[in-house]
Design a protein around this nucleic acid. Structure first.
Length: 191
DNA sequence: GCAAGGATATCG
DNA sequence: GATATCCTTGCA
C-alpha cells in the first residue's frame, strides 16, 4: 500500500500524447470503457505503467500513476523490484544481478516507487492487470481515498516524456504532484 | 549521452 | 512480415 503522489492526465483522441490518438486499438480498448478500471501498458520493453481509466464509457481517458510513496509492504516491494530488475534483462551477468539486488536493497523507502515504471515494478504489475476494477473494495488492486486528501497541496506542471515541440498538448499542465513529497519521480536535482 | 526489451502502429 | 517508435530508467 502507498500514497499516490504524482499523476498525469490524458484525455480524448485529440490529445496527441495519449494512446488514444490513433483511435480505439487492441491495446487501448479499456480506455474507451467505464471509469475506475486499470489500464497497464508496457513501455520501452521493460516497464509496466499503471493508469486509471477516467471519464464515462466512449470517452477515451486515463490518469497515469507516476509515483507512489510506500506505506505498507516495503519488503515485498523491494522483492518485486529485484525480481523485475533481474528478469527483464536478457544480458545480465550474475555479478550484475547481485549488484542490482544490493542497489535496490539500499534504496530509501521513499524512492521504491518514485517513477511510473517503478510503480509497476514495486507493485508487481504487468499488462495482465489491465481490466481490474480499482474501485471494487474486494479487488486485489484498488484505490482508496486518502484520509487527509483535503489538506494536501498539489502543484501542476507539463507532462513528462511526450514529444511534439511547440504543440499545445506538450505544454498543457496535466501532471500533478503532491507538494513536498520525497517520492516524486526524477533525479534529486530536479525535485 | 545512450543502451536496454518488447509490444505496437504503420507501413510494405 | 519488417521497422521506427514508445506516457522509462540507470549507468557510461
Amino acid at each position: 500500500m502507498g500514497r499516490i503522489v504524482e499523476v498525469e492526465a490524458y484525455i480524448g483522441e485529440a490529445d496527441q500524447a495519449s494512446h488514444a490518438r490513433f483511435g480505439e486499438t487492441g491495446r487501448n480498448r479499456v480506455m474507451y470503457g467505464p471509469p475506475g478500471i486499470a489500464y497497464v501498458y508496457l513501455v520501452y520493453g521493460m516497464y509496466d505503467c499503471l493508469n486509471v481509466v477516467t471519464e464515462p464509457a466512449g470517452v477515451p481517458a486515463a490518469v497515469l500513476i507516476r509515483a507512489v510513496e510506500p506505506i505498507e509492504g516495503i519488503g515485498p516491494m523491494r522483492v518485486d523490484r529485484v525480481v523485475r530488475a533481474t528478469t527483464r534483462r536478457r544480458t545480465l551477468s550474475a555479478d550484475r544481478m547481485v549488484a542490482e539486488a544490493e542497489r535496490i536493497a539500499a534504496l530509501p523507502v521513499e524512492r521504491l516507487a518514485a517513477g511510473p515504471g517503478l510503480v509497476g515494478a514495486a507493485f508487481g504489475l504487468t499488462t495482465a492487470w489491465t481490466g481490474v476494477d480499482l474501485c471494487d473494495p474486494g479487488s486485489p488492486l484498488r484505490l482508496e481515498a486518502a484520509p487527509d486528501a483535503a489538506s494536501i497541496q498539489v502543484s501542476a506542471t507539463p507532462r513528462i516524456g511526450i514529444g511534439g515541440a511547440g504543440e499545445p498538448w506538450v505544454s498543457r499542465p496535466w501532471r500533478f504532484v503532491v507538494r513536498g513529497s520525497r517520492s516524486t519521480s526524477g533525479p534529486a536535482a530536479a525535485r
